[in-house]
Amino acid sequence: MKLFNISTEPIDNQNVIDQVIHHNAGAVSVFIGTVREMTGDKQTKLLEYEAYVPMAEKQLEKIGQEIEEKWPSAKTAITHRIGTLQISDVAVTIAVSTPHRHEAFEACRYAIERIKEIVPIWKKEHYTDGEEWIGNQKGTQSYPSGRPERVEK
């Protein structure tokens, strides 16, 4: 299994976790993103995820490298699922191991925020009353200056 993976199959959380456990890890922090039914008064029936797969895997790997630079003993594994997902299905699983707990929490949070900025994955909401491609959830719908903050060439 790859450390940084885009998968069309359901995610096995334990597989992602097992990849970061090693003898000098003292903490593993895990983030699991799942499909939510209600967003405000909109009801989701299902979600469709699409990715630019080879680039998305490269960008996930880049996030892993950024984490290693910020928290040198950290080890990261990320799997993101694409295709059609139902309510409560797991869309993304991130596991980060570090020697101590504090860094594991911080690094895991960092990983999910970066996914939402730089990884070419898109989500189409199928609501009970229509459908739409969702733009950047970090705030703006477009990138007026050409690129979002902290996207490097």
Binding site: G33, Y49, A51, Y52, M55, A56, H80, A91, V92, I112, I115, K116, E117, I118, V119, P120, I121, W122, K123, W133, I134, G135, N136, Q137, T140, Q141, S142, Y143, P148
Partner: peptide, 9 residues
Amino acid sequence: AFIPPVSGG
């Protein structure tokens, strides 16, 4: 590749 605002996670 033209990459519209991403919405993974």
